[in-house]
């Protein structure tokens, strides 16, 4: 009986949390589209989310492309399908690994930083201070981050796609003995618009999810340094899980026929 009760309580708490998140998201969206707009903040967040994530995302992409080529080679050699490597690399990177890995890396970097910054502002009453100084904290803090995250993430993923394919190219040509020109030719032939577009749509959604979770957990953090620490952890974990969840459904939307 006790176990059942705690299960029920956990489930209700979960539903309440989902409800709060949805209300927060809708309120954020509503206030994002209404003036005033803080364009300089959008610019700053774009640099923070996009530009400063480039090294992390680039490194992730290049090693992923490299290992993809290597693994495919050793796997496909069993049924002499090594020639499919360019296709495998480009399709896997653009459809899946580019957006997902870039998203996860950005979740770790950006959602954590946002939750910590906004959370600290919350516990030191800076968010209350914003309100008393005629500023809507949603428009000032949340909206620029959501806009920047949603817009800049596709660009970041495009860069990751290119670097990832380049990683596959490097390993294929310099280690596995492929001909560079024919590798590129095969890559271009295999690539379809839909592969890239679906990846970029995912990227935009992931950018929104990551920044939303960072803002949500920061905005609702309570109780000093410990609360901010908890908000940071929750932001990264929930952003990552939601991202993987949405990844499946967007894939289904694009490719399940």
């Amino acid at each position: 009986m006790g176990a059942l009760r705690s299960l029920g309580r956990t489930f209700l708490a979960f539903l309440a949390a989902v409800g709060r998140l949805i209300v927060f998201a809708l309120e954020a969206l509503y206030r994002t589209v209404r003036p005033p707009y803080y364009l300089s903040h959008v610019g700053r967040q774009t640099i923070e989310i996009g530009y400063y994530s480039l090294p992390v995302v680039g490194l992730t992409a290049i090693f992923t492309g490299m290992v993809l080529a290597l693994q495919s080679y050793t796997g496909f050699a069993r049924f002499s399908a090594e020639s499919a490597i360019p296709q495998v690399v480009v399709v896997t990177i653009t459809r899946e690994l580019g957006p997902v890995l870039a998203g996860l890396m950005v979740a770790g970097r950006v959602a954590a930083a946002m939750a910590a910054e906004i959370g600290t502002m919350r516990v030191t009453e800076q968010i209350d201070a914003l309100t008393t100084l005629y500023t809507d904290p949603f428009k000032y803090l949340v909206a620029p981050r959501l806009i920047a995250g949603t817009l800049v993430m596709p660009v970041l993923v495009l860069v990751a796609d290119i670097i990832g394919v380049f990683g596959g190219f490097l390993v294929s040509v310099y280690k596995l003995g492929f001909n560079g020109a024919s590798f590129l030719q095969n890559t271009v032939n295999a690539l379809m618009t839909q592969d890239v577009v679906s990846g970029l749509v995912k990227a935009a959604v992931f950018g929104f999810i990551v920044t939303l979770m960072g803002c949500y957990h920061g905005y609702n953090s309570r109780g000093g340094a410990q609360g901010v620490g908890k908000a940071t952890t929750n932001a990264v974990v929930s952003a990552s899980i939601l991202l993987l969840c949405f990844n499946y459904f967007i894939t289904e939307l694009f490719f399940a026929r």
């Binding site: 502002m121 800076q126 201070a129 008393t132």
Partner: peptide, 17 residues
């Protein structure tokens, strides 16, 4: 309206870092 009726001094000042 861009009016300023209320001013608030917070306990730990709550300055924007």
């Amino acid at each position: 309206e861009g009016r300023a009726k209320i001013g608030m001094l917070f306990q730990n000042a709550a300055l924007f870092d």
